[in-house]
Computed example of a mutant assay.
Amino acid sequence: MNAFKIPESVLVVIYTPRLDVLLIERAGQPGFWQSVTGSKDSLDEPVLQTAVREVMEETGIAATPAQLRDWALTNIYEIYPVWRHRYAPGVTRNTEHVFGLCLPDTCEVTLNPREHTAWQWLPHDAAADLCFSPSNAEAILLLPRFMA
């Protein structure tokens, strides 16, 4: 594992056919609700594998690569100053790859308490409103397009 986080990550929107979206609350940042996110573990880790791994680590949901859909969306954004110490000196931007995971229905999840403290399923528009990350909110608002 690298000493610093790799500035390439995934965002996985987990949802149902009724457009209910799973949000998880970040540990240490009350009110910071988000979808599953996480950085690559190594430079050569495929982003699809990163997505599968992060879904399992953050929710306990054992998704297969075939269940994840690459939305072919990439966001490049400024890393929040509060988290820049996790990256190599001078790294200020992250590249995020967006995936979707459709589950047949809402379900219980098992959080990693070091990363998240609460979870909830919400209608997609309410979930987008609650997200602290603009790129996460935008991805959730695009959900109906990916359902078509």
Rank of each mutant, 00 (worst) to 15 (best):
H124M: 12
N112V: 07
A88T: 07
D129Y: 00
P123V: 08
T106L: 04
H116R: 07
T106V: 13
L101C: 15
R93K: 15
E115Q: 07
N94E: 14
R86D: 10
W119G: 09
T117H: 00
E96V: 14
P113H: 04
D105Y: 04
N112G: 00
G90Y: 00
P89H: 02
V98P: 01
T92H: 07
V109I: 15
E96S: 10
Y87C: 09
D105T: 13
H85R: 13
L122W: 03
P104G: 05
E108G: 03
P113L: 08
T110K: 14
E96Y: 03
G90M: 13
W119F: 14
E108I: 10
H85G: 06
C102L: 12
G100D: 11
Q120M: 13
H97W: 09
T117V: 15
C102D: 12
W121M: 13
N94D: 10
R93G: 00
T92F: 02
P89W: 03
A127C: 07
V109F: 07
H97P: 04
A128L: 10
R86Q: 11
A127K: 04
P113F: 00
A126K: 15
Y87V: 10
T106A: 10
G100Y: 05
P89M: 07
V91A: 08
G90N: 04
R114L: 15
Y87T: 12
C107H: 02
D105S: 14
E108L: 12
T117R: 10
L122V: 09
G100P: 05
H124G: 00
N94M: 15
P113M: 12
P113N: 08
D125P: 01
H97Q: 12
D129W: 04
C102K: 13
P104F: 10
T106Q: 15
F99S: 07
N112S: 07
H97E: 08
G100W: 09
E108W: 03
W121Y: 11
P123N: 10
R84C: 02
D125V: 06
W119V: 06
L122G: 05
P113T: 09
T106P: 04
G90I: 06
T106G: 00
D125K: 13
A128S: 05
E96P: 02
L122E: 09
Q120P: 01
N112C: 14
L122C: 02
G100C: 08
L101W: 10
Q120R: 08
A88K: 15
V91P: 09
C107Y: 00
R86E: 11
P123H: 06
R114P: 00
D129C: 01
A127F: 05
G90C: 01
Q120H: 01
V109Y: 03
H124D: 06
W119A: 15
Q120S: 03
W119E: 14
D105E: 13
W121V: 15
L111Q: 06
H85E: 15
G100S: 14
T117Y: 01
V91S: 01
Q120V: 05
W119D: 07
H85S: 15
F99C: 14
R86W: 11
A88G: 01
A128V: 02
D105Q: 14
P104S: 09
